[in-house]
């Protein structure tokens, strides 16, 4: 009886000691990982901080404007180029008796900001205009 209990306790003590030993080394390894991760996070946060400042520096409007001026044909959007979808005119419906001459089409004809529009499709049927009129996003606004 006594010997059996002693053996049980001895086994327990051995298991505990082994477990504690393993646990200690696992904790040491985990702490190393944690320190490495914390260091990496700190380094990343500092890098992000510096990069945010650099992003702001590189996206300074005057600098971007110089770059755009030397590489692109963009100009600031003026108020004359802003409108709403509802304000866009529909294409006038041609009369059936008048064969429409295919004149070059521009938006704002005769003005400095005239914009050429794509040409019409060749007339294959007498009703292409009617189909075009139904095309806009708001069919209810289409006039016959």
């Amino acid at each position: 009886m006594i010997r059996g209990i002693a053996i049980v306790w001895g086994g327990l003590v051995l298991a505990l000691a082994t477990g504690l030993f393993l646990l200690k080394y696992e904790v040491i390894a985990l702490e190393d990982d944690l320190a490495a991760l914390t260091g990496a996070i700190a380094a990343d946060r500092e890098a992000i901080h510096v990069l945010r400042a650099e992003w702001s520096y590189l996206s300074e409007p005057a600098y971007l404007e110089r770059l755009v001026g030397s590489h692109l044909d963009l100009v600031p959007v003026g108020p004359e180029r802003m409108t709403t979808l509802a304000a866009l005119p529909f294409r006038p419906v041609a009369r059936p008796d008048a064969p429409a001459p295919l004149a070059p089409r521009v938006l704002n004809p005769g003005q400095v900001d005239a914009i050429p529009l794509p040409g019409r499709k060749p007339m294959t049927a007498p009703r292409p205009l009617a189909t075009l009129v139904t095309l806009p996003l708001h069919p209810s606004r289409g006039r016959p």
Partner: peptide, 21 residues
């Protein structure tokens, strides 16, 4: 964890562009 990177706060514009850091 997450200690401040620097000792003084940033100044941003209304859209979050960094003006001073």
């Amino acid at each position: 964890a997450a200690q401040a990177v620097v000792q003084r706060g940033d100044v941003l514009d209304r859209n979050g562009v960094v003006l001073a850091t």
